[in-house]
């Protein structure tokens, strides 16, 4: 259980694992009603701050909403309030889940290791080891 980070502070004490993206903080909402529109999400999340980006995918097979959307806020505090205010709530008759999308690298992570190091299948590709 993520009880430590789910305490719900909006002052930066919670979600200490969340990572900032290049231009803001991205949250993910899942469990969306398949008839949700981007306007619905704009209305819901616009209450917490300026929504700088909103990306809602459609199921390629059915044409209906895939079920998730990614939303960008400029400030962490806005994103945190949006998570706290919408996670586990009912939206368009569905229980939605909301959380930060990106995480900081775990302390033990090897950074920038050549991809071939983690291969589970033997393949003769990846001719550019170590390139940034």
């Amino acid at each position: 259980m993520a009880d430590v980070d789910m305490a719900g502070e909006v002052n930066g004490a919670g979600h200490s694992w969340a990572a900032k993206s290049v231009e803001g903080w991205i949250i993910i909402v899942t469990g969306l009603n398949e008839e949700t529109t981007e306007e619905d999400l704009q209305d819901l999340f616009g209450d917490y701050g300026e929504v700088k980006n909103l990306s809602m995918a459609l199921n390629r097979r059915t044409g209906y909403v895939m079920g998730y959307a990614l939303i960008e806020f400029p400030e962490k505090e806005q994103a945190e309030k949006a998570v706290k205010g919408t996670d586990g709530t009912t939206f368009l008759e569905k229980t939605i889940k909301t959380d930060f999308a990106f995480s900081k690298a775990p302390s033990g992570a090897r950074s920038r290791a050549p991809a071939s190091g983690a291969r589970r299948t033997g393949r003769d590709r990846e001719a550019s080891p170590g390139r940034r």
């Binding site: 995480s103 550019s128 940034r132």
Partner: peptide, 20 residues
């Protein structure tokens, strides 16, 4: 040229990936 990126994602992204 070659573009390589890596990003760490939170549990909600992983759960959605699994669901798909």
């Amino acid at each position: 040229s070659l573009i390589r990126k890596e990003m760490f994602v939170g549990p909600a992204v992983v759960e959605e990936l699994k669901r798909i």
